[in-house]
Design a protein around this nucleic acid. Structure first.
Ligand SMILES: [Zn+2]
Length: 448
DNA sequence: CATGCCGGGCC
DNA sequence: GGCCCGGCATG
């Protein structure tokens, strides 16, 4: 009889939950009032599941109130839950919603054009980052692709969190939040066209359009630069010139990573006139959510089979992670827009940088750092946040390998080497196993 | 096949 | 929430 230990009793609490929630809601609300049409949901469907997935997260996230634990989990592994909730998307859908009369408040010009613009830009970015081939379908995992969307996140997010840190299978990362933002990409009528246009014309398009009135501003995410410009073209140029340093075509793509579009309700207005560089903090209102599921890769694939375990993605889907991390370091808003493309990284990383970001928990590569996160024992699976930047840099050095190779991220860690209760005590002494083991959950006693 | 554990189901 | 177990991933 070995003595049973109190196994980790101390769990982490639901810590950051509160903060993330608010963010979420804000986000939603924005969207919501912009759009409220149930009918438009199908539009995007074909476009890509990414978006939907995101939305689904959001919506369902805030709709239901599950226990905090649950919620957290969802964030991390959202997909699972996602499955069902997908339908929720309907009403929200929209991002773009084209023109709702309500938007008008600040925009004098037709919001539609403006929005389109943004949307297109987003799409473009997405596609660019998604893969070199852009529209091409997912290079990587075809099959599991379904999960691909989730797969992205999976890299880090999927299981990562469970590291159990806190204690039970219900991880607690206080912050996981689901979903990046709902608005983002999509096109209304013909995605193809939009895409092409953007691709080909690229900034030109944007340039032509009046940038002044749109409700968003572009903020440079470069570490020490917080420049905010009202046009995407401008910001790109800024990035290219000042940060990337002129370069090849490639640099163009990278630019996307370094700037984010901020479109907040309040922000827009104020920003337009005086773009001061805020840390985007406010921006977070809309965005926050996390990585989400949408991987970009799947963009084309779209259907995701949510159903089945995320894990699968991880393992099988290895491929999808694309560039791993994105820069979370960047402000949250960044995510909303770019989530699709870059992020795919999935990173559930929370990062120290942005505590508010619900993104997820971070796993710090090292361990038990715990400082912010509540997780005492985190397994090093992925990297942490700022990696995004690193990644970017690296990436740009390379010829962009196009494909996203996913490099990295961790998939499931296989089985750690640590022996778990089962091995230690044997099936015969099952009663000595930790509760988790008994329940076939992640072992708490020997976390790895 | 053994192990680890996610996702669900039942109470 | 506690408890179990199907089923899958990994080794
Ligand atoms: Zn155990």
């Amino acid at each position: 009889m070995a003595a049973m230990r109190p196994e980790f009793g101390a769990g982490a609490g639901p810590a950051g939950t509160a903060s993330r929630l608010p963010g979420l809601q804000a986000c939603i609300s924005t969207t919501a009032h912009n759009i409220n049409r149930p009918d438009m949901r199908q539009t995007l469907v074909s476009t890509q599941s990414c978006v939907q997935a995101e939305k689904a997260f959001i919506e369902h996230g805030h709709h239901k109130n599950k226990t905090s634990a649950h919620r957290q989990r969802e964030g991390e592994r959202g997909w699972s839950s996602l499955t069902t909730p997908l339908q929720t998307v309907g009403p929200t859908t929209h991002l773009k919603n084209l023109s709702s009369p309500r938007e008008a408040p600040y925009s004098f010009r037709s919001p539609e054009s403006v929005e389109m613009d943004e949307i297109m830009a987003a799409m473009v970015l997405t596609s660019l980052s998604c893969s070199p081939t852009v529209q091409s379908p997912p290079p990587m995992d075809p099959g599991p692709a379904g999960s691909s969307s989730s797969a992205d996140m999976e890299c880090c997010g999927g299981e990562l969190s469970d590291s159990g840190s806190s204690g039970y299978w219900s991880w607690d990362h206080g912050n996981s939040s689901p979903t990046p933002s709902p608005f983002v990409t999509e096109m209304e009528g013909s995605p193809d066209e939009g895409l092409h246009m953007e691709l080909e014309q690229g900034e030109e398009l944007n340039a032509k359009k009046p940038k002044s009135s749109f409700r968003g501003v572009y903020k440079c995410l470069w570490p020490s630069c917080g420049k905010v410009l009202t046009s995407s073209v401008g910001i790109k140029r800024h990035i290219r010139v000042l940060h990337l340093g002129s370069g090849s075509d490639q640099s163009q793509r990278e630019e996307d990573f370094y700037y984010t579009k901020i479109c907040c309700e309040s922000v827009d207005a104020s920003v337009a006139p005086a773009p001061s560089q805020q840390p985007v903090g406010q921006t977070s209102a809309p965005p926050p959510l996390s990585w989400a599921s949408c991987g970009s890769p799947p963009c084309s694939e779209l259907q995701f089979l949510p159903a089945h375990r995320p894990r699968s993605n991880s393992s099988s889907g290895v491929g999808p992670s694309r560039p791993s991390a994105l820069s979370q370091s960047a402000p949250s808003s960044f995510w909303q827009i770019h989530s699709e493309h870059l992020y795919q990284a999935c990173s559930p990383v929370q990062v120290l940088v942005a505590p508010r970001n619900p993104a997820c928990q971070g796993w710090v590569p090292i361990a038990p750092v715990s400082g912010h996160s509540n997780t005492p024992m985190v397994k090093p699976r992925c990297r942490s946040v700022s990696v995004g930047e690193q990644w970017l840099q690296q990436n740009r050095l390379q010829p962009m390998s196009a494909s996203p190779s996913r490099t990295h991220c961790s998939f499931r860690k296989g089985r750690g080497e640590a022996k778990k209760c089962r091995k230690v005590y044997g099936v015969e002494r099952k009663d000595q196993w930790c509760t988790a083991c008994r329940w076939k959950k992640a072992c708490q006693r020997f976390p790895d």
